[in-house]
Design a binder for these strands. Structure first.
Lengths: 163, 163
DNA sequence: TTGGTTGCAAAAACTTTGCACGGTG
DNA sequence: CACCGTGCAAAGTTTTTGCAACCAA
């Protein structure tokens, strides 16, 4: 997967595209917040993000961060999460928009895949409920060949680490 | 999957076991709340749950519901979850494996669905990578009929609130 | 110019906590 | 009986909203 730095620009592009499609405006604040968000590797809380953007512009307030994150969520570039009883956090979801994940529960390796048939069915399901599908998240958890004990089966993680 | 009714007793058993292991007490309120929670099919918000238990005992307050749900989370019988920007909701642990979610990004309503074709394809995909599929998580995000501006289109959330 | 946008502060929503009383072990 | 749990209300947190000034298109 792309490193955090490398993905920032493409994601900014998607964000701007969404803004103009919706006739919304690009502003310094939105850009600053979105950029800081995309550059994060893992999960960010509102406070984290506010702290980051205030390094650049100390006058930014919570409201703008909340509003921008809401926009990012609407266009599928961010996803709200909550682990346990902790506070709400956001994660970059842009890279999950067009491919899905296959995760080995043994070695934790994550493979990405795409499958048109599944996407088509997802669309059908959404339509059958009267919904217009915007994005999706699909995660498959299973055992990789090695973990299954297949002789010669390789663990995708090990195979990759050699490179 | 076990029907909601069928699983209540075993889960109550686990809960009581946890309580006694931790030297905590069983009380009418805890039982009432836990039972109502386990009997739910999908997701429950604190408010839903409070409403349910108040049918039986109108003097129960938020605090007790929060405290009980915290206990249930600690012992792994409940999981806090958050879809989009909506409020925190809880679901019965282990209940996520067998249905998927369709979420409106406008009104935050969550519908559950099952689709055998999708599941079959997921299995195929996993197999094509040499994986043995154990479980999955699929979330579809879109706009409900009303949010799409369809005249007469109803928001699932509103439709539900009438009942 | 015409809206959408921002920052601030106030309001609302959501959770947690302190305390006196009540109930379980 | 000792102590944990409960309900209530108050306190804390987190998130949203109203509004006048501002800024991008």
């Amino acid at each position: 997967m792309a490193s955090p730095e490398a993905r920032v620009e493409p994601l900014m592009g998607q964000f701007h595209e969404y803004l103009s499609r919706k006739q919304l405006k690009s502003t310094k604040q939105r850009d600053l917040i979105a950029r800081a968000f995309f550059a994060q590797d893992g999960h960010v809380s509102i406070d984290d993000l506010l702290g980051l953007v205030r390094e650049d512009n100390s006058r930014i307030g919570y409201a703008t961060v909340y509003r921008t994150l809401k926009l990012l969520t609407e266009c599928g570039l961010a996803a709200a999460r909550q682990f346990g009883d902790g506070q709400r956090i956001y994660e970059v979801a842009g890279d999950t928009a067009h491919h899905d994940h296959l995760i080995c529960i043994e070695c934790q390796h994550v493979l990405e895949f795409e499958n048109e048939d599944i996407e088509r069915l997802q669309d059908q399901v959404a339509r059958s409920f009267g919904f217009n599908l915007v994005r999706h998240k699909l995660e498959l958890y299973g055992l990789c060949p090695k973990a299954r004990g297949i002789k010669g089966g390789s663990c995708p993680r090990e195979a990759e680490e050699k490179s």
